[in-house]
């Protein structure tokens, strides 16, 4: 999922302090799971802003709450078509994708971010999310025992650990596992160390972010 973290409320207040009517727009997907932008967080942020406005002599300011199923699809964003124009600002607490798509669809309403979008990751435990994928566009997990050196090695090394790997940990941080240690341990566990010895073609980085914004176009599912 896409992992995001809450923005400091002071920063959000700074964006909207001069607005009269604000919509806090949440998303029911990834940001709900990482407890940054779901219905509950919408309620907390709306309450906070209402208290801020009331306490600063701006008690006629209106802060409404809405949580959409997703903010990255036309069909769900259409649900606010009739009301979006009434607002001076929308604070979207979806991921960066949702925030941008909301801004694209409602061109004349300012849309502000309420979260910092962080990475593609997993919930390791409640309150702890860690990165797993960098969406490089050419998946090599088949050769690396299902552990990604692009996302999990600090140097994105593709041919084994560097000299900084010590006792299974990375040189940049003693708490960080060396991705290649994990890969080798896993290859041994599945009895596929032959993959470690095998030569692979040079990775095609043209599908990575360096080539500019990417797209996936699939004619088979297009209407």
């Amino acid at each position: 999922m896409i992992v995001a973290d809450k923005k400091p409320v002071e920063e959000i207040i700074e964006y909207v302090k001069d607005c009269e009517k604000i919509l806090i727009l949440g998303c029911n997907e990834c940001v709900t799971v990482c407890e940054a932008g779901g219905k509950k967080e919408v309620g907390v942020l709306a309450s906070t802003l209402r208290m801020y406005f009331a306490n600063h002599g701006h008690s006629d300011a209106v802060v409404d709450e809405r949580t959409l199923e997703r903010q990255c699809d036309h069909e769900y964003l259409e649900e606010i078509r009739d009301i979006a124009d009434q607002y001076d600002a929308i604070v979207s607490i979806a991921c960066g994708v949702g925030i941008q798509f909301t801004a694209e669809k409602y061109h004349s309403v300012p849309v502000y971010p309420g979260v910092n979008t962080s990475f593609l990751g997993v919930t390791e435990q409640r309150g702890l999310w860690t990165e797993r994928c960098q969406a490089c566009g050419q998946c090599i997990l088949a050769h690396t025992g299902g552990i990604c050196p692009v996302a999990r090695c600090a140097k994105r090394l593709l041919n084994g650990p560097c000299g900084g790997s010590s006792k299974g940990k990375c040189e940049i941080n003693k708490d960080l596992d060396c991705a290649w240690q994990l890969i080798i341990d896993r290859l041994k566990a599945i009895d596929r160390m032959d993959l470690y010895e095998k030569f692979f073609n040079i990775k095609d980085w043209s599908t990575d972010r360096a080539g500019g914004p990417r797209k996936v176009a699939r004619e088979d599912v297009q209407i």
């Binding site: 409320v9 207040i13 907390v44 208290m51 801020y52 306490n55």
Partner: peptide
């Protein structure tokens, strides 16, 4: 923390 941020 939230109350502090809204000056309560």
């Amino acid at each position: 923390r939230i109350l502090k941020a809204v000056d309560i």
